[in-house]
Amino acid sequence: MSTAVSVRGLRMSYGAAEVLRGVDLEIRRGEIFTLLGPNGAGKTTTIEILEGFRKRSAGEVSVLGTDPGKATDAWRAKLGIVLQNWRDHARWGVRELIVHLSGFYDDPHDPGELLAAVGLDEQAGQQVGRLSGGQRRRLDVALGIVGRPELLFLDEPTTGFDPEARNDFHRLLARLAADDGMTVLLTTHDLVEAEKLAHRTAILSGGRIAVCGTPAELAQAVQAPSQVRWLEDGREQVMTTPDPSQAAWELHRRFGGPVPGLEIRRPSLEESYLGLIGRNV
């Protein structure tokens, strides 16, 4: 089975408010997939439905071949979940907690190796409540993967991180995913993070998936217009076009040769993204 998550026509309403209006998603095994969108786009609702924590209003959902609405322990054992706001088990020792939670799984990671992998060996004997924010999040990841999950959910994992901690975290995640062949589904509202980490990204906007694909595909799909600049009559000319290559070709023909000061600026992914969510809001 090469599909880890399959979602068709997923709808979710809270009372009269419709948060998800027909989400379609297909996540392949072994890929790092980000669900990107502005705050309030329905990312957390989507991920909570996939985790089996929330009942959907309508649609077909299959996570590792199971409907999360009918979660069993055997299915749960194949998932790892890392949430944003955990402050639990503050009195436990770091290692003590990892050992305790590893006991629930058939083939868990070795606690010592796991501590080393997330860079917490020095904190092994420390109380969980005394960890810094970044250390705490790394512990959450360790606890999320202790049972060797096939699919790891990360909900906004780097919110509140400084750039250095964020970089370290990205490297850790990429390494873990590569080593274990784990599928990772990550939500973020940070485009740079999605671009850096993900094999593929889906942009959730207005309760639907607006675009889905690799970063390059994404940029192309949203097709924010490019700018073409050149010098003519001693002045800079600017033209905005969805097809800059065609425009450049026409300019070359008109000039009958090189175009002075020719410059083509394709929009960055960020610009495209902002354009996209602006368009849908």
Partner: peptide, 20 residues
């Protein structure tokens, strides 16, 4: 307290966590 700090939720993410 366990509910507010997320302990209950943590155990909910784990197979057999709630009975334990």
């Amino acid at each position: 307290t366990d509910r507010e700090e997320g302990t209950l939720l943590r155990l909910r993410t784990i197979p057999g966590g709630i009975p334990a």
